[in-house]
Design a protein around this nucleic acid. Sequence first.
DNA 1: CGAACGACCTGCAGGC
DNA 2: TGCCTGCAGGTCGTTC
Length: 272
Amino acid sequence: MPELPEVETTRRGIEPHVKGGCVADVIVRQPKLRWPIPVDLKQHLVGKKIRAVERRAKYLLLNFEHGSVIMHLGMSGHLHIVTAKAAPEKHDHFELQFDSGQVLRLRDPRRFGAVLWAEDPMLHPLLAKLGPEPLSPAFTAKYFFAAVSNKKAAIKKVLMDNAVVVGVGNIYASESLFAANIHPERPANSITEIEAKKLVTAVRKILRAAIKQGGTTLRDFMSADGKPGYFRHALQVYGRVGEPCYTCGGEIESVVIGQRNTFYCDSCQPLE
DNA sequence: CGAACGACCTGCAGGC
DNA sequence: TGCCTGCAGGTCGTTC
């Protein structure tokens, strides 16, 4: 489900409800997510307060004084804020109950998500080797051009490589390449310095706009307060195969790159 | 070493 | 209505 804008939307949605909250209980209904939920998680958390809610790439971090809960929403996860008396539904696998009576509840039908514990999350193997945040000053055109220029894989694949830049998933990769007029199958090392700059600008602009709209809801994404994201209406190419390009009127095409469906406009994004 | 692919899951849409 | 197939916002681990 979520790419960076949806995770950031979730972070912003839950933060005011859980920041400062003291954990009263930890409920695990289904421990089998991408990795098992640690059996000793409750011991770490009961009686402890959440100091901050951060995001790194598509991971959410619930920071406590002595460590962090690392959460990933996978393809279908979302977090809700509910009250303790709200009955859990199918696929509500995990929750933190606070002494305020509020509950942070994780629903994840496909169970590709994760709930982990780390004393120092940035040193955790899943986070340690991640590339720069796309909205941080570290994601410069100079950096990106250097990262791209020694790779012959398709630019779309490289854009989705978390070691190069984090948070750009299947939707925003197609959208960013369209905005930068770059064909997704172009070898990464064929990208010029000017194009690299254009693509960096496009990624940042699109992710910012998507966050502003509360993310993209294709079928089931919702923010913590139950609202869908409105960026779907701003999508230029994603999911629009066979429909006319809003810019040139040509037909949007699709191609599979790295096992992922990819959308583009052949005339706005020429292959040379 | 990088590239390709399988794996992990459920739900849903579409075809027959 | 029901069964089957394919596809879906991610990404790690294995194999070549």
